[in-house]
Nucleic acid binder design. Structure first.
Lengths: 219, 219
DNA sequence: GATTTTTCAGTGACAAAATCACATTTATTA
DNA sequence: TAATAAATGTGATTTTGTCACTGAAAAATC
């Protein structure tokens, strides 16, 4: 197995012993997950720590009614650190992950990461740092939800996708945006139409073209 | 200084060296904060790790418009662990704390806790565990906000205060509940009136008496 | 290639909740 | 006691969420 993946994902990699590295390399499994594959985390159920080799995944919470709200996305090289927290101290939150593209997922088993965590201060530091960062992200999201109106959350979602895509043509349905903005599809439709008549976007089936990103940012 | 405070607050206390304990004991400062005193955390501004010697404090986020939403409360013996995270890796979240009663607050300076954190695995483990726990709490709160209606959040807030007070007579204004439930005061007034006519609570100025906690729990 | 099925978007009606603008009542303080 | 502040009550309006559909476009199937 190519260790570049680990070297890039883990800043502590260089500080590990040969044995520790081998332990990781020999126990990590690779999975090819097709687009739309879903994984569930929570209730103590955590396979281990995951690294996204390639592709994009969406992490979200699911309502009792079935709807879901996006928390964040994982891109190439990202580490699903909440799995670590979930597994280290039985963090009792329920999360789901869905592949937005075909993905290569590498999984370091629970026990292997746990052992590493116990042995290495650098791994502890890394884990702490990543969890704190995620915590910050979630708090930011919380702020958006409780203090911003729907229009600005939708605008934010559009701009985030623009950053991911690296272009103004977003292949998104209203449903997709609804999940990111934490609202209903019909509401997105209405507000996007408003955006369109204000000259901010152009709407086509399954596609949204951003015309005026600057004004979107001001909403 | 009495070390019982630390012994009770920190499970790692026994594992520290004499020197480390002395370091904490000699550098911790005690402050008496009157009811309504406010402290701000964020933007790298963290005095250190705080232990509530006695009293009760409310931790919340503040909206640009001035309103605020309660995240959690700290009671006797609790440790304000987010300060730790804030200070360890510059977690960039803005939080405020307000004393709900007169409080004794003990502060372990940033540098002292940081040093301890670097030296002791037990302190790292403790810090990690506490942060994960807080993370879980916040995620739970997030779920409540995005998936529950206002009535059930208000019912939840009432029951939480009942648990804190240990009785059915709650000295709370509608404003107080609005902050806990993340809604407007008028909305609380209306829903409480509904609760009252349903025989769940009895309302007096500045006081809410819970009549039927069981039914409240079902909302 | 035509037909069926699925996905996506649009819309009106209504309900829930937030916001605004006050009025009223009860405590506190001067 | 009067004046002030704090807590509550209420109507009107706007925003957002929910429900129940319709029609259009794309995909899958025949």
């Amino acid at each position: 197995m190519n260790t570049d993946l680990f070297k890039n994902a883990f800043p502590f990699w260089e500080s590990l012993t040969e044995t520790q590295r081998a332990e990781i390399v020999n126990n990590t499994t690779k999975n090819l997950c097709e687009k739309k594959t879903r994984l569930h985390f929570g209730g103590g159920e955590c396979a281990g720590v995951q690294i996204i080799g390639s592709g994009r995944a969406r992490v979200f919470i699911t309502s009792p009614g079935g709807g879901d709200i996006t928390l964040f996305r994982l891109l190439d090289g990202d580490v699903s650190i909440l799995s670590a927290a979930c597994m280290l101290n039985g963090m009792d939150i329920e999360l789901d992950m869905e592949m937005e593209t075909d993905c290569e997922i590498y999984t370091i088993p629970k026990k292997v990461y746990r052992k590493l965590y116990d042995e290495s201060g650098a791994v502890k530091d890394y884990t702490m740092e990543m969890i704190s960062e995620k915590f910050s992200d979630i708090m930011w999201l919380f702020n958006q939800f409780v203090f911003s109106n729907v229009a600005s959350r939708i605008a934010g979602a559009l701009l985030e996708h623009r950053a991911i895509e690296g272009g103004d043509e977003l292949k998104l349905t209203h449903e997709d945006i609804a999940k990111d903005a934490g609202t209903a599809r019909e509401v997105v439709t209405r507000i996007l139409k408003q955006f369109q008549s204000d000259g901010l976007v152009k709407l086509t089936r399954g596609k949204i073209t951003i015309i005026d990103a600057k004004k979107l940012g001001k909403i």
